[in-house]
Design a protein around this nucleic acid. Structure first.
Lengths: 175, 175
DNA sequence: GCAAATTAATGATTTATTCAAG
DNA sequence: CTTGAATAAATCATTAATTTGC
């Protein structure tokens, strides 16, 4: 971090090891994490309140724990596993350039990771307003042209990158 | 992985949807899906014929597409979002199949379908079956006690070895 | 070896969605 | 159309790992 903007250095983990009398955040033991992980691996993702209480009760054997800790653990673990998965898959490298251009300048240290899509709410809002939702609603004619444009199938080559398409913001404003 | 069976390879999504010289089904590009998803996310559910044509027209920039594809996409996406939502409540599962590294054998259809949980036999299976998934759905009270159990913080001594805890197998069977 | 300084993990909150009841 | 329930995404905040200079 460059300049510590606010700086109040929070201090010391004072209590030192033993009796953390402070009500800081939950710090799970290895055994607790092990059990939670195994439950997750077994398929449990969003335990019910009752399950949470049972789990918490059992895990309290290994150390201090509350129900909410279990709840949060599953929420976070689920989200982060998914995040990890998605990152590995790397859909398309189309938005890599977006990431690399200007995102970096903002923050040098913190979160880069997420976010490929930086949609501004305002933009979307505008777009939404452009929908003629109250349009006469032409009796749902559901049979669109059944044409097969196959004839022109070679119009785009694989070599030509699609990367120079307008950003999604623009894409959404056409309606 | 198990793509060999059926014999026809599904094209990668980012391929531009172009290769198909056959008039098979529409294969949306990543960009197309992205825009459609964003439109959906912005509130569009059942676009009018006119909207469909505009959308289709714009999306044709990214690859072959027809109006009916847009129509079907919205219909399917709407239905599947609802389905997913309902399934989460019931099963609390989403991509467990992905997590499973072996024995996956997702026989029939792919994800989103029926999540045939093919967990490996034995203990884990039992454990899973013990989950009271059909539990009364106790209004999900998400506000757990905000208490700080600090008072009773010494209920367990650190000196006591945790090693004599029951094996993980037992730990998982308590639910 | 040791702490201060820095970075990476992850616990805890907040915000934005979704569907569907009213 | 509004709102309630539920949750996932995004974010904030604190702790552990680690790096670094001595």
């Amino acid at each position: 971090m460059e300049e510590g903007m606010s700086g109040f250095v929070v201090k010391p983990r004072g209590g030192g090891g033993g009796g953390a009398t402070k009500c800081g955040r939950w710090n799970p033991t290895a055994e607790q994490v092990k059990v939670l992980t195994e439950l997750f691996r077994s398929g449990l993702r969003t335990p019910s309140t009752d399950q949470i209480q049972k789990i918490s009760s059992q895990l309290s054997f290994y150390g201090k724990i509350e129900s909410k800790n279990v709840f949060y653990w599953f929420q976070n673990h689920k989200a982060r596993e998914r995040q990890k998965r998605r990152r590995i898959v790397v859909e398309d490298d189309e938005n890599v350039d977006i990431l690399r251009q200007d995102k970096v300048s903002v923050s040098s240290t913190k979160h880069f990771g997420e976010v490929n899509q930086v949609f501004e709410p305002g933009r979307v809002m505008e777009t939404l307003q452009l929908f003629p939702l109250n349009e006469p609603e032409s009796e749902k004619l559901r049979f669109f042209t059944n044409e097969c444009k196959e004839n022109a199938s070679i119009t785009y080559a694989f070599g030509t990158r699609m990367d120079d398409h307008p950003p999604l913001d623009l894409c959404l404003s056409f309606l």
